[in-house]
Design a protein around this nucleic acid. Structure first.
Lengths: 214, 214
DNA sequence: TAGATTGTTAATCGATTAACAATC
DNA sequence: TAGATTGTTAATCGATTAACAATC
């Protein structure tokens, strides 16, 4: 509990928008812009300027002179807030289609995440390398997690196996689980879980489609 | 505008939870349950019973006797609400890692979606078949969309190409776009867009992780 | 009946949007 | 200065949660 991060309840929605801001700020920085106003950002992102102002304000993005946010400082503020200022080592369980897609997503390096190992039970996959990441047998899970002191897991396995594996992960001291299996995981309160459900987005799309074609 | 669907503003969050309910109800139906109470559902899903009651109520799920929701009828209500009662034919653009993962996700057939064609510009992929879906060259996009009368697109291409392709899709009469590229798309109001940003979930996880390890 | 449940209205909470003063 | 901007407080909107009557 550092006195610096006197965190004043930053909303989930704000947090979800931060990566988008970060991408825009990276671009701006590359183009040499040092300041940018919330109205300019609004034009770029299609988000209302007040929302942007509030969001960036809430994480303490630096903003001098009435000429907008400091580009470099805001990048640092977002990265710092999310802990993306240094790479978090993570591992992935389930090297199927989705797992391989995530392993191939080089963008994670801009997002604070470096996947350093993958696990699978399928003999065809074990021993392979996917995008430079070695695939180990799940039997080696405990040993490797502990020796490499990995704390972040990405779960891309079928729902039926998810809770069992999760229990093992918790035993091994894993602190965060990014779960793509469509199953609510039970974990002790000290472990962070982020649940992704691809079908939620599809449901939203279908509802929009229906209302448009009324 | 059928008088049946006198839709009374169903919240986005409710819509996003529907697929989860649907999965549970499929299971219940398979196990032969014909009725289920919101308290039982709450135990299964870790969602508060009042939330479940409200959600299902809002889409008109049938619920007789003070003994809960009718399993079969609720499945039909959810499927009907989302338009998942008959399969929507869709196509995918960008047969890279993520595209292949989505093509391999057989679960879509339970979710009202059938991907019938894929497009890519990479000569190594064109002409291939991924999970039984043919990969065509993007040059053939217009012809095939129009001849098959496809209305739903799944975009798994790099951000830089997304808006250009989108313009073509709109020209061809596409009505819904599920966009996995990290770019806000500009479309006419008659077209539904669902934006997915994988980084949002990661940001949420990192924020949770930080607050737990304070 | 007693008890568990839905149905429905009200209260709370949180996030977005508006308004406007302060600034350089 | 004039004008665009941040800073900050208030108002609105929407979603969640609580409360309790009605039901079989």
């Amino acid at each position: 509990m550092s006195s610096v991060s006197a965190k004043k309840n930053i909303s989930t929605q704000t947090i979800r928008r931060l990566p988008q801001y970060l991408r825009v700020f990276y671009d701006l920085h590359e183009y040499g812009r040092s300041l940018v106003s919330s109205t300019d950002l609004a034009a770029e992102t299609h988000i209302l300027p007040i929302v942007i102002k509030k969001d960036l304000q809430s994480i303490g993005a630096p903003t001098k002179l009435r000429s907008g946010f400091k580009v470099k400082g805001t990048i640092e503020a977002i990265e710092d807030f999310l802990g993306w200022d240094n790479l978090n080592k993570a591992f992935l369980i389930g090297a199927g289609h989705l797992g391989a897609a995530l392993l191939g997503f080089s963008g994670f390096k801009n997002h604070g995440l470096e996947i350093v190992a993958a696990f699978d039970t399928n003999p065809e996959r074990v021993g392979q390398e996917i995008n430079g990441v070695a695939v180990y047998h799940t039997a080696q899970l405990k040993t490797i997690i502990k020796s490499k002191k990995l704390k972040i897991a990405v779960l891309t396995i079928p729902g039926a196996a998810a809770q069992g594996i999760t229990d093992t992960l918790v035993e091994c001291g894993v602190k965060a689980i990014w779960n793509f299996a469509p199953v609510k995981l039970s974990v002790p309160p000290s472990v962070a879980v982020q649940q992704e459900d691809i079908a939620s987005g599809l449901a939203e799309l279908c509802a929009k489609l229906k209302s448009k074609s009324s």
